[in-house]
Design a protein around this nucleic acid. Structure first.
Lengths: 166, 166
DNA sequence: ATATGTGCAAATCTTTTGCAAATTC
DNA sequence: GAATTTGCAAAAGATTTGCACATAT
């Protein structure tokens, strides 16, 4: 990938990475490295987030976790999300609030990428590019800001939808 | 501004633009041009958003509007925000949820810019750069996506805070 | 005159919290 | 065994909705 491009697409239900240069470090290992106490619930939730082919919101994550451990509680899900977020291990997204006010989560990737949400069909595309990496460096340098989290989200019409008549 | 830089700073309370190249088209005129029916409430709310030196959340906007029209309702505020958002006249921000889960709004500017939120002191900095504009064009071209809304938000430590000991 | 917008009150949706019991190291 | 985490139940915070009345064009 010379410059940039779509690295994955999700049509509300699935997401398929097609760029091997983007990897997801193991959340479990990162937590261990940080000496975080691991409970059965955390292992379960972290595993689901790590393996998920799609962006998960708290309610969906809870539902999925309940299949394995029906006793797990909503509060634990939120607390685990907060833990991962504060440790910088997951990213939080809005996906342009295309579907309610909730947040979506994904394991941090080796390379930052942007999310493009189609207002018409709801497709979510991920886009990574060296220009984005460069912009990030430039922003940090010029502002003196130490960037911990960066989130670039786009809303509009995907290639297919902009061609369709209304 | 050759490349990019901080264009405004807001320390939770105020924001001061220091880059004349960034302007805010008149919301009122844009609405008129689109043939939107104008009520007293809309004029009031739109005026407040247009003139605000800071990013407003719905509750704050309601409070400010009540000073002028005590009878104005929360629902009207949310409905007006939705109207402006769908017409592409205001941008919606999270400011990294540095203060609760609410959203913040600002009149769309002539030039897209990014928001940087300091996790320690809560300062909000706005950053505009030609690299951002370029990235935006590149993303649209390479993905075939028609960008309607773009939102770049950063969280981390501002220049001052990163120097201070914890 | 008619379509559209508003206020009110209740509902919904998402996320957070206090606390006693359970679990991890 | 001490410190931390969980489930539960209730609360809080943000936003939305149905409906009768008011307003804009």
């Amino acid at each position: 990938m010379l410059n940039g491009g779509i690295v994955a697409t999700e049509s509300h239900l699935g997401r398929s990475a097609n760029d091997a240069s983007i990897t997801r470090p193991s959340l479990m290992k990162e937590l261990a490295a940080r000496g975080v106490r691991m409970t059965a619930q955390r292992r379960l939730l972290v595993g689901i987030i790590q393996d998920s082919p799609r962006h998960l919101d708290a309610a969906t994550l809870l539902e999925m976790a309940k299949e394995e451990d029906p006793g797990i509680d909503r509060a634990t899900v939120y607390r685990t999300i907060a833990l991962l977020k504060h440790r910088g291990l997951i990213d939080e997204l809005d996906l342009m609030h295309i579907e309610g006010e909730k947040h979506y989560y994904e394991a941090k990737t080796s390379r930052d990428h942007c999310h493009m949400a189609c207002f018409r069909c709801g497709a979510i595309m991920e886009y990574a590019s060296s220009s984005f990496e460069r912009l990030k460096k430039e922003m940090a340098q010029q502002s003196g800001f130490e960037i911990r989290v960066i989130r670039l989200e786009v809303g509009g019409l995907c290639k297919k939808c902009r061609r369709k008549p209304v």
